[in-house]
Each structure stands twice: as structure tokens, then as C-alpha cells.
Amino acid sequence: MDILSQQLFNGLTIGSVYSLVALGLTLVYGILHIPNFAHGAMYMLGAYVTLTMMLLWGIHYWLAMAVSVLVVGLLSVLMERLVFHPLRNAPPIHDKIAAIGILLFLEALAQLIWGADYRSMGTPYGEVINLFGLTVTMQRVLINVGAVVVMLLLYLFLKKTMVGSTIIAMAQNREGAHLVGINTNKVAMLTFLISGGLAAIAASLAAPINLVFPGMGHLVILKAFVIIILGGMGSIPGAILGGYILGFSESLGATYLSNDYKDIIAFLLLVIILSFRPKGLFAREGF
């Protein structure tokens, strides 16, 4: 029982990170139908920027994370302007190729700047606490709470503000958004800004319990794709639910099946769920 509840908590923690990454991916897909493979690189850069801020200038963890959100968010917008926007009328395969190209480029760049070493990130929240009989570190609690707070803020932004509604409107009907006078270029940039910011938050939260290295985005982005395919491409609730489903199955699978094969669980899950629901858990059509 003890192991089970400990693993459930771990699943929740991993799931929180997955959900945040998948949310950024699904937002961009919902609006522009671009499968943004470079999102994994944004995640990696998010961790590096936070780490660098903390080591180089001794900035506090939270402040470093804020800087990282800003830097990665703006990089993400830059990527949209320089790469995806010029490709808007090209066949869809070009977006995919470009996205993979950006991923490889940014990884090589990170290796050039920071080297290929595995680094660990310190956190001011390293203390171990007792939570309802579970022994957990403060950082893990922070990941869970942080993710929920970010998701709530995102929900309120999308549903309750006019600017947020433009994102939803564009996802539901691009031409309709044009016709009511929404500037779809601005919405695309805003979406990339949010998407990059989410990746930076996820990476900065998760880095202290993992390691930071140039290839850290690989497995995360692959799993995030599994999640949004499971949840229904472009669906927001699908991305959140899918993230937690994957988190739980991985941590339980690692304990009760095999720790060595835990990374394969995501893909097994994909095969099983798509066999029964080919369109994913939530059918798409704009959030």
C-alpha cells in the first residue's frame, strides 16, 4: 500500500510535467495544425536558461524561471516568424521537416554553448516533508501545485478574456476569425509565446528532479506527441488528461512491470487506445 501511494504520487508528478508540455504542443496544433517537433528543444532550452541564470548570476529559482519563460516564449515567437509563417502556404510536410530541423539545430546550439555534460539543477525546495504519510521532497509538491495553478490560469485566460477567446475562435474556424476582424498573425504569435512559456515552466519545474542535457527534450516531446494523439489532436482537456494517464501508467508500470521498459509504456498505450478510439479520447474540432 505504501509503495502504491508513493508511486501514485510519482505518477501525478510526472503527469503534471507531461501535461504542461503537451498543452503547449496541442495549442499550436489546434491553431496552426503544425506538429511542432521543436517544442522538445524549447523544453530543453527552458531548463538551460533557468540553470544558467541560477549558476551565473545567482538569481533566485523563481526569478530564473520567469526569465526562462520570457526568453523561451520569445524564441518560440521568433521561430514562428522566421520559419513557420513563411511556410504557411506550403504543403504540410514542409512544416514537419522545418520543425525537425529547428529541433536538431537548437540541440546542436545547446551543445555548443553548454557542452554535452549532464548537469543537475539545485533548488531551494530540496527538503523532505511528510505529506499524509508519504515521504516526498518539497520540489515534487511544487511541481504538482505549480502545474495545476498554470493550467487554471490558462483556462481562465482562454475562457474569460477576449484575447484568450481569439485563440479558441481561430482554432474553431480560421476564416470565421478573419471575418470578425481578428488578426490571425497576432494570434499565431501569441499562441507560440504561450506554448514556449509552458515548455519553459515545465522544464524549470522538472529539472531539479531530473538532469539537464542537450538531448533531454527527445523523450519528452515523443511522449507529448503520444499524449496529444491519445487525447485527440488539438484538444486541451485531452492533453491534460492524457498527460496524467501517461504519468500514472509509467510510474505504476515501472514498479509492477519493469523499470527498464517504462519508456515503452507510452507507446503501448498509444497502440491500445487508438485500436479502440481511432480519433483519440476527445475528438478534435477546436478545444
Binding site: 477567446s165 479558441i168 475562435a169 474553431q172 474556424n173 476564416e175 470565421g176 478573419h178 471575418l179 470578425v180 476582424g181 481578428i182 488578426n183 474540432e285 477546436g286 478545444f287
Partner: peptide
């Protein structure tokens, strides 16, 4: 398109182009 709507021309397009889930 946005500037044109602001200047006072609005189109109600064929196929309606509504936001179906709103």
C-alpha cells in the same frame, strides 16, 4: 481583413463560418 472590418465592411460568408463549439 481586420482593418477592413474596422473600416466598416463585414462579410457574412457562405458556409456561415461560425465558431461551432462556442
Amino acid at each position: 481583413p481586420g482593418r477592413i472590418v474596422e473600416s466598416g465592411i463585414v462579410q457574412c460568408a457562405e458556409g456561415r463560418k461560425l465558431f461551432p463549439k462556442m
